[in-house]
Amino acid sequence: MQEAPDAADLLATARAVVLEKLLPALPAEARLEARMVARALEVAARLIADRSVPRCPPGLAQAIRAGRCDGDAAVLEAIRADTLARLRVSNPRALEG
């Protein structure tokens, strides 16, 4: 069994330090990079917690190109579910509003 705190805790704690302590103390030209660091920690935390499974079988890309999936509602639903699952990890804020 791993030692606590776990990855999620460490990443969240580190992110809070970057945003609350480091960012205000940094010169203007370094702030964008500090925000990127905070963002990377946030995405990494969601990647670690992600339990979604791939919904699109290998070879689907070629099948779509060849027209074998035209109008196939089940394929569209699988693509939607797969994309949505990855979006929830990469940038869930895009789904707000």
């Binding site: 990079e33 990127m36 995405v43 939607r80 994309t83 979006l87 940038n91």
Partner: peptide, 18 residues
């Protein structure tokens, strides 16, 4: 890091395209 994070824009763009 900027290029690395750009990769995580892709699902949003895929979702928009869909």
């Amino acid at each position: 890091l900027e290029l690395a994070l750009t990769g995580h824009l892709v699902p949003q763009l895929e979702w928009e395209a869909l």
